[in-house]
Simulated scan of single mutants.
Amino acid sequence: MKRIIFLSLVLMIFTTNLSRVFAQDTLPRFTVKNAGNNRIIIGWVNNYPVTKQISIQRSFDSLKNYKTILSVTDPSAIQNGFADTKASNDHMFYRLFINLDKGEFFVTPPQKPLIDTSVAVTHPVEPPKNKDVIANKPFPKKPDFLPSFYVYTNKDGYVFINLPDADKKKYHIKFYEENDELLFEIKSIKEPALTLDKTNFIHSGWFKFELYSDEKLIEKNKIYLSKEF
């Protein structure tokens, strides 16, 4: 049954969940991955009971001249991260400034981006015709599911849409049931970060979505809402 739901969109500024595909580390460890297309992905898992602030800092130098490029709105989120699309190159240094409870704070050791090999191969590789190549050798394939860079859920069952450049581009998104039946769509998204109420998805399980920018499809993926929501 097709329907367009008038949603109550709660504006939140937050950063991108990078999920398991980017192999997030638990703070104070964090990951910095070069995901290609001028995207440097910084991600982490937060198990601290109280976190007042997490700021991402970037520098050309590993020791000095760090500048804060983002302070996350919800530092207590278990899984969190950010996509830096404005770095002048892909070998800058990143670190986290973390403010815990009762004035305790620290700065993590810096890291440089590593190439994210989890999305490097999208199709089976044609084996070279060489007698030294072992026959029937398996070739890497794209995983069945890679969590979205733009759309994801949190532990409370809310769906987040993160579009850092929404003020410059025209976005809209369509959500579908798993059988490809249109559930609802949101047109002309102008906010960089949106939270969709979990009740809009009616039930738990898998939902598909299509994200468009300036009428061009930029991602076709899916999300999962657990029964616990």
Score class of each variant (00 low, 15 high):
A166M: 03
A120I: 12
N154M: 02
K174G: 00
I134N: 02
P124I: 06
D144G: 05
P140Q: 13
N136W: 02
N136L: 06
V159Y: 05
L163E: 07
D156Q: 04
T153L: 06
V159W: 04
P127Q: 07
K129D: 15
D116G: 03
K137E: 07
T153S: 10
P127D: 03
T117L: 15
T117P: 03
K170Q: 10
E104H: 09
K131Y: 04
N154C: 11
Q111K: 09
P110L: 04
I173A: 00
S118R: 12
N130Y: 03
E178M: 14
L114D: 11
P113C: 14
D165T: 08
P140I: 08
K141A: 07
K131C: 02
F149S: 08
D116Y: 14
F160V: 00
N130P: 01
T108S: 12
P140F: 09
K169A: 11
Y176S: 09
Y152G: 03
N154D: 15
K129R: 13
V133T: 05
K169D: 08
A166C: 02
N162V: 01
P113Y: 13
P127F: 01
S148V: 07
D144C: 05
L114A: 14
E177A: 09
T108I: 05
P138V: 00
K174C: 11
I115N: 10
N130E: 05
P143A: 09
F106S: 00
F145V: 09
D165S: 09
Y158Q: 07
V125M: 14
D165V: 03
F139D: 01
Y171N: 00
K112I: 14
I115Q: 10
L163D: 07
P124G: 08
F149R: 09
P127I: 02
P109Q: 13
D165H: 11
P140C: 11
T122A: 06
H172W: 04
Y176K: 06
E104M: 06
V121D: 09
F145A: 01
F139P: 00
I173P: 01
